[in-house]
Amino acid sequence: PNISEEEFARDYINHLEEIILYEGSESIAAILMESVTGTNGIIIPPNGYMQGVRALCDKYGIVMIADEVMSGFGRTGKWFAIEHWGVVPDIMTMAKGLTSAYAPLGAVAMKPEIAAAFDEQVFESGLTYTSHPISLAAAVANIQAMREDQVVEHAAGMGGVLRRMLTDLGESHPSVGEVRSIGLFGIIELVKDRKTKEPMAPWNGSSPEMAALRTYCLDNGLFLYTHWHTVLIVPPLIITEEQLREGMDVLDKALTITDKVANK
């Protein structure tokens, strides 16, 4: 729509408030969302949206939970994606980048007033490997290394480079319907028609063109993840501009496969 991000966000916030009023705030324990939606499309909230959700949660006494499993630990150029909007959630979930996948570990952070509830009432839950010392040691070492090597700052700087490269691909290939990125968290939407945005593959499925594109990339040394009609660009946070360009060169050639079925 031909409106500002702020207006767009306000419409969504108004709709969310309507739902809260319809359901009754007393029946809503929490609002849980990914700070930046991952596998389902790298959906980046418009300016003002997260602030609006925070305000609604405060207004109606609802807990705000930010899922940072994919977007946390530098992926978006901040330690946590929600920092981009200056919002502090009540509860935050994290995993993946917490140990850089050297060991499996997930964690939940919460405000002191929420944690205090468990001072008197034990939270009856547990897993076989809860608080495993090897995983905890990996997390501590990982965070220390990320700080010393300024990995998050590097990802923030490379974010602009990735954005330019994705924009260039979009301008060069008719099968690219849209590109989005924040930090080193990016996506390419492939379409058969830019005007109608008909996807290159159906919902919850694939297509010969998407399969061929992925095969070409793998055959030429580029590993990436395709999901329906999208290509996720989620490189290592320590990637260099030269390495990123090398991967994009392979993807540039692979996109000629999907261009063949796109309306020019």
Score class of each variant (00 low, 15 high):
residue 2 N to Y: 14
residue 5 E to S: 05
residue 6 E to S: 03
residue 9 A to V: 02
residue 11 D to Y: 07
residue 14 N to M: 00
residue 14 N to V: 00
residue 15 H to V: 03
residue 17 E to A: 02
residue 18 E to I: 03
residue 19 I to R: 11
residue 19 I to Y: 11
residue 22 Y to V: 01
residue 24 G to A: 09
residue 24 G to E: 04
residue 28 I to V: 03
residue 30 A to F: 10
residue 32 L to C: 04
residue 32 L to G: 00
residue 34 E to C: 03
residue 35 S to K: 04
residue 36 V to E: 03
residue 36 V to H: 07
residue 36 V to D: 07
residue 38 G to K: 00
residue 40 N to H: 10
residue 41 G to C: 01
residue 42 I to G: 02
residue 45 P to Y: 01
residue 48 G to C: 12
residue 49 Y to G: 00
residue 50 M to R: 02
residue 50 M to I: 09
residue 50 M to L: 11
residue 51 Q to E: 09
residue 51 Q to S: 07
residue 53 V to W: 03
residue 57 C to K: 08
residue 58 D to K: 11
residue 59 K to R: 08
residue 60 Y to V: 01
residue 61 G to I: 05
residue 62 I to E: 10
residue 67 D to A: 08
residue 67 D to E: 06
residue 67 D to L: 12
residue 69 V to K: 00
residue 72 G to F: 12
residue 72 G to V: 07
residue 75 R to I: 08
residue 77 G to E: 08
residue 78 K to V: 00
residue 84 H to C: 08
residue 88 V to Q: 14
residue 93 T to N: 08
residue 95 A to D: 13
residue 95 A to Q: 09
residue 98 L to G: 05
residue 98 L to N: 05
residue 99 T to Y: 06
residue 100 S to L: 15
residue 101 A to K: 15
residue 103 A to C: 12
residue 104 P to G: 04
residue 104 P to L: 03
residue 104 P to W: 11
residue 104 P to R: 04
residue 107 A to D: 08
residue 108 V to F: 14
residue 108 V to A: 13
residue 108 V to E: 09
residue 109 A to Q: 13
residue 112 P to D: 02
residue 113 E to P: 04
residue 115 A to Y: 05
residue 118 F to M: 01
residue 120 E to D: 11
residue 121 Q to K: 06
residue 123 F to P: 03
residue 124 E to N: 10
residue 127 L to W: 06
residue 129 Y to K: 00
residue 129 Y to I: 00
residue 133 P to R: 07
residue 134 I to H: 07
residue 137 A to M: 14
residue 137 A to H: 12
residue 140 V to A: 15
residue 140 V to K: 15
residue 141 A to H: 12
residue 141 A to L: 15
residue 142 N to S: 15
residue 142 N to F: 15
residue 143 I to V: 11
residue 154 H to T: 02
residue 157 G to Q: 08
residue 157 G to A: 05
residue 157 G to K: 06
residue 158 M to G: 01
residue 160 G to T: 01
residue 161 V to M: 05
residue 163 R to E: 11
residue 165 M to E: 15
residue 167 T to L: 01
residue 171 E to F: 01
residue 173 H to Q: 04
residue 174 P to M: 00
residue 174 P to Y: 00
residue 175 S to Q: 02
residue 175 S to M: 06
residue 175 S to L: 06
residue 179 V to P: 10
residue 179 V to F: 14
residue 181 S to A: 10
residue 183 G to H: 10
residue 188 I to W: 12
residue 191 V to C: 12
residue 194 R to Q: 07
residue 195 K to M: 14
residue 197 K to F: 15
residue 197 K to I: 10
residue 198 E to F: 03
residue 199 P to A: 09
residue 199 P to W: 10
residue 202 P to T: 02
residue 202 P to V: 05
residue 204 N to M: 14
residue 211 A to H: 13
residue 214 R to A: 13
residue 216 Y to R: 10
residue 216 Y to N: 13
residue 218 L to T: 13
residue 222 L to F: 05
residue 227 H to V: 15
residue 229 H to Y: 12
residue 229 H to S: 13
residue 230 T to E: 11
residue 230 T to A: 09
residue 232 L to W: 02
residue 235 P to T: 05
residue 237 L to V: 06
residue 245 R to P: 03
residue 245 R to K: 13
residue 247 G to N: 13
residue 247 G to E: 12
residue 249 D to V: 08
residue 250 V to F: 11
residue 251 L to G: 08
residue 253 K to W: 09
residue 255 L to A: 11
residue 255 L to W: 11
residue 263 N to M: 09
residue 263 N to I: 14
